[in-house]
Simulated assay, not measured.
Amino acid sequence: MMYEKKERKISRKQQNCKAFRGKLNACRNALDSRWNKFQRNATLLKRQLTWQFNGHLGKKGISGNIKISYEEKTLSIEVKMPQDASSIAVRDTKGLSGGERSFSTLCFALALHEMTEAPFRAMDEFDVFMDAVSRKISLDTLVDFALAQGSQWIFITPHDISLVKHAERIKKQQMAAPRP
Rank of each mutant, 00 (worst) to 15 (best):
M1F: 13
Y3D: 14
K6W: 07
K18D: 15
K18I: 09
R21Q: 15
R21F: 15
G22V: 00
G22C: 13
K23A: 13
N25Y: 11
A26Q: 14
C27V: 15
C27D: 15
C27E: 15
D32P: 09
W35C: 07
N36T: 01
K37Q: 12
Q39G: 04
Q39S: 06
R40C: 03
L44D: 09
F53Y: 11
N54H: 05
N54P: 03
L57N: 02
K59N: 13
G61R: 05
G61F: 04
S63R: 12
K67D: 15
I68E: 10
Y70P: 05
E71F: 04
E71D: 10
K73P: 04
K73C: 07
T74W: 05
D84R: 08
D84P: 02
I88P: 10
I88M: 09
D92E: 09
L96D: 12
G98F: 06
G99S: 04
E100P: 03
R101Q: 09
S102D: 07
F103M: 10
S104T: 08
C107G: 01
C107I: 03
F108C: 04
A109E: 06
H113F: 07
T116P: 02
T116M: 02
T116E: 01
P119W: 00
M123E: 02
E125A: 06
E125C: 07
V128E: 09
F129D: 06
A132C: 03
V133Q: 10
R135W: 10
S138E: 05
D140Q: 09
V143L: 03
D144S: 14
F145G: 02
A146Y: 03
A148F: 08
W153Q: 05
F155C: 08
I156F: 07
I156A: 06
I156P: 00
S162T: 12
L163E: 15
V164W: 04
A167F: 05
A167R: 06
A167M: 06
R169L: 01
Q173W: 11
A177F: 13
P178G: 11
P178S: 14
P178Y: 10
